[in-house]
């Protein structure tokens, strides 16, 4: 394996792990449901995407050929993350989950 591939894989792994952790910290630490929604949809999706990408580079550099399964999973995650966030936000608004005090504006009641 070339040195460049090694650096790229390590950097992507740490980047991905870091963002996954940041997403989880956001989930644990932010004050209300709607703000907590931001951590998993963005940080975690990007983190897992980076880990997938490092896996693609790793397996293609130890010459097992290129397999697009990882890319498929990543594309799937990127497509589904906004949908599940939207569905959960709708459910939360329907139930009437409380927002944090200094939120500007409020959810709709349809």
């Amino acid at each position: 394996m070339s040195l460049f591939a090694e650096y790229a894989i390590s950097a992507l792994l740490l980047f991905g792990g870091g963002f996954t952790l940041v997403g989880a910290i956001g989930l644990a630490r932010l004050p209300d449901f709607y703000t907590r929604l931001h951590g998993p949809t963005k940080a975690t999706t990007v983190g897992v995407g980076a880990i997938m990408f490092s896996s693609v580079i790793y397996f293609s550099s130890v010459d097992q050929g290129i397999d697009f399964s990882e890319v498929l999973i990543t594309v799937f995650l990127f497509m589904t993350a906004p949908v599940s966030a939207n569905m959960l936000a709708k459910a939360a608004m329907h139930i009437g989950v409380e927002t944090v005090k200094d939120t500007e504006g409020g959810p709709w009641h349809q």
């Binding site: 996954t20 907590r36 975690t44 897992v48 896996s55 995650l77 959960l88």
Partner: peptide, 20 residues
């Protein structure tokens, strides 16, 4: 309840990362 569902949603994504 939505918080718990969101937590499970994040958990399965993390499980995928661990499997990879």
């Amino acid at each position: 309840e939505p918080d718990r569902v969101l937590a499970i949603d994040t958990l399965y994504i993390n499980a995928i990362a661990l499997i990879i």
